Amino acid sequence: MGKQKKTRKYATMKRMLSLRDQRLKEKDRLKPKKKEKTDPSALKEREVPQHPSCLFFQYNTQLGPPYHILVDTNFINFSIKAKLDLVQSMMDCLYAKCVPCITDCVLAEIEKLGQKYRVALRIAKDPRFERLPCTHKGTYADDCLVQRVTQHKCYIVATVDRDLKRRIRKIPGVPIMYISNHR
């Protein structure tokens, strides 16, 4: 006598009664659906997202010559590695006055990095940098920057982080500044 082979049944479900089954009581049975006739002359409503008034198609009218640039942590680090003066290279790039802005979250992120990034911390605490206070909880800088840019479209975002650049490209009318080839 050999052992009987049992094959396993995959993706099997317990059989359930349909709500229209005859064996169910009247109170548990599903009521037949009535089709509502739609009036062809009635106005159709649809949900359209509200776009900010500062955008003229993709062109942002709020960006003006004293450019406010939100600086990310890795942008400061890469500028040190590329031996760039941050404010001067921003002005060379845009041919206008630039006001680098740094949020509390970015500053906290640089402080967390420790002694290795003390030069970056000293650059971030430069008096030429405008400090922007954060009211939200947590210190994740990427979320903070994306949130601030979606609320106020008057900023240019300076970052080297690929994920952050990908997130900001989805927001219309927000330019991105980055470092490549030491410029």
Rank of each mutant, 00 (worst) to 15 (best):
K31E: 11
S79M: 06
D163Q: 11
L113W: 05
C134D: 08
I102K: 01
A108S: 12
K34N: 09
P133N: 09
V99S: 05
L19Y: 14
V174Y: 03
I156R: 00
I168Y: 00
G2T: 13
R23F: 09
R169D: 08
S41C: 02
D21P: 05
C98A: 04
A82C: 06
T150Y: 11
V174Q: 03
L145A: 02
H68L: 08
R169S: 09
H68W: 06
N74V: 05
G64L: 12
T103R: 01
K112W: 05
L164Q: 03
R20D: 14
R122H: 14
G64F: 09
K3F: 12
G138Q: 01
T12N: 14
A108W: 05
D104N: 07
E47F: 15
P40W: 03
P175A: 00
Q22Y: 13
L24I: 06
K35P: 12
K81P: 06
K37S: 11
S53F: 11
Q50V: 15
P133S: 11
Y67E: 02
A82F: 07
I102Q: 03
K5D: 11
C54P: 03
E47M: 14
M13V: 13
K31W: 08
K125H: 02
L43A: 14
V71F: 03
V71T: 04
R167D: 08
K35H: 13
K116N: 07
D28M: 03
R183N: 12
V146L: 09
N181F: 07
